[in-house]
Design a protein around this nucleic acid. Structure first.
Lengths: 164, 164
DNA sequence: GCATAATAGTTATGTGCATAATCAATGTGT
DNA sequence: ACACATTGATTATGCACATAACTATTATGC
């Protein structure tokens, strides 16, 4: 691939990151949230109480990030952290009532943001977009076990990834 | 759009941002660069000397970010800042020889990253990907003042007023 | 000419994210 | 039983990004 195309792609991803994040920030600000925190609330709302290590895995960010985010959300009264009885190292994180209400509001914003984001695109493109983005993500994901240790270069490493 | 689909989309964009950035960081680290700095170098390499306000516009980030990034790149010897003769407020930013050499290395990495990113996708999808991403970006771009005279907005301009 | 607005840049501050180092608790091997 | 690695979480530090407030220069109105 020549540099022109490569740069167009990388730059497009970079700019989409910046703008989508900025737009999310402007929508979340009235709720007193910063970008990233909404993902934590939504994950707790979806999965229920869980320990920070699980949150770290689900959110795709590192434990120190989870520590800081949970601390701020706890200070805001949206989540509660209680020591896990079975493992004294871990703390169980769960939504408070305020957090649940907030998560519901976030859901609304999230739908509006998604619609705004894909506006003007054909429906079929919209339909396959999540899959495409996930493929891109997996391709550059250094966290996951890469699904193979083979020295295969630029071959289609389409693993039959079963849902985890 | 229901929440399931909306979240899949928003989350996919969020994760792609995180992973693509992380992957770029691991590639740029050996060059002594952090993500974001490469965009500045590439822009200077492409366009030539320019003032920070132009850089801010081209990179899509705010002037204070440019101030800090240019300061660090200048400390690293990759760029040079000279006061503009015509306007005493502005400073002209340009690549040093070291910066030009670095930009060339970045170009190589950039091609490798792009290829890695789109690995396993059909060629036609890859071809239209930059355009799709740009559409998404423009849809949520709060910087540029709409600029679209709405020539062919197919569906959903249903809420031109505030959505929330 | 001069007050005022607009622009280029910086500083201060706050956020999410990262890595590295550290501590406490839990596993595991011999 | 005990040394050792592993795991959950935190602290310290650094970066890119943001906004708000500020200085210095340039442009504009009267």
């Amino acid at each position: 691939m020549d540099f022109e195309h490569a740069d167009a792609l990388n730059q497009a991803i970079r700019l989409l990151s910046l703008r989508h994040r900025a737009r999310a920030a402007s929508l979340l600000a009235p709720l007193g949230l910063h970008t990233g925190q909404e993902a934590l609330l939504l994950e707790l709302d979806r999965t229920g109480p869980m320990i920070q290590a699980q949150l770290s895995e689900a959110l795709g960010c590192e434990p120190p990030s989870v520590t800081l985010m949970t601390r701020k959300l706890e200070a805001g009264g949206h989540i509660r952290r209680t020591p896990a009885p079975s493992d004294k190292r871990a703390s169980i994180v769960e939504l408070t009532d305020s957090g649940k209400a907030l998560a519901d509001q976030v859901k609304q914003l999230w739908c509006a943001l998604a619609e705004e984001t894909v506006g003007g695109l054909p429906a079929e493109t919209v339909a396959e977009l999540p899959g495409i983005l996930k493929t891109l993500t997996d391709n550059v994901d250094t966290r996951r076990p890469t699904t193979q240790a083979a020295p295969a270069r630029s071959s289609a490493v389409r693993s039959p990834s079963k849902a985890s």
